[in-house]
Simulated scan of single mutants.
Amino acid sequence: MRRPFRVIAAAALLCTVTACGSTDETGSETAPGAATRSEAPAPVDSGAGASGVDACTGEDIKAEATVQEAGVALLAITNASDAACALDGWPTLGLLAADDSAIKVPVEEVAQPGPATATALDPGETAFAGFKWTACDLGAADCKVATTLTVMPPGGGTPVNATITGVEGGDQAVEELPVSGLRVGTIQPSTQGVVAW
């Protein structure tokens, strides 16, 4: 079932989210921590194949994006399964139109706030990534209107619909989000610096 974007601040109405596409290791940004955790999940030993922990797939996760300011959001990816799994790299973000058709906009994967940190997540644990989007005028040729944000972990599987919330009061559903481009940061075990780029 498609879930509409949700924002908590009126300013978030100016924000837009975009679809997925290319792979590029440039760019930079880090976001202030919005989600809270008592402790960070353990980084994975990159040479040991995550010590036998399978990669998280879309079937293992749930996702939530918290708007930090116009055009900037913190993505939280939580292991919703009953077994440990690992994340390493970039999440794949997608946008859907009102009719559930895929929207294609330029997407740039950036090494921000630094290289990805392979992270093993026990059930209920969360890893993070920042993303930024370019808002656009609805009359522009490259402007797309999205109603749903989807997230797929690097391990593949079926994308999941993400909820989007703001950082201030209220709970207002956003029916349409105009966007023309997206930059996605690397997955990290904590919120530190994730959207500060």
Results as ranks from 00 to 15, higher is better:
V44M: 05
Q112M: 10
F5Q: 07
L14Y: 12
A40H: 01
L96V: 01
G21V: 08
S101C: 02
S51T: 10
R3L: 14
T158D: 12
T119S: 02
V107D: 15
L87T: 12
E29V: 12
F128G: 06
V107K: 13
Q112H: 10
A35K: 00
D88E: 06
A120T: 15
G27L: 08
E168H: 09
K144W: 08
C56D: 00
L149R: 06
L149F: 07
L93K: 00
A65W: 00
D122G: 07
C15S: 15
L121C: 08
T66N: 07
P189T: 08
A63K: 03
S190M: 04
E176N: 15
E168F: 10
A129G: 02
I187K: 00
A120W: 00
G181E: 04
G47L: 10
G157T: 03
P32C: 00
G47D: 10
D45M: 02
A40W: 05
T148F: 12
L96S: 10
S101W: 04
L138K: 13
A129S: 11
A173T: 15
G170Q: 11
T158Y: 04
S51M: 06
A34N: 07
V72W: 03
V167S: 08
C85Q: 02
P153H: 12
W133K: 08
V53N: 12
S51V: 06
L87C: 10
A12T: 12
V167L: 03
A9L: 08
R2T: 13
P123G: 04
G130K: 00
A19D: 11
V53Y: 02
A127K: 11
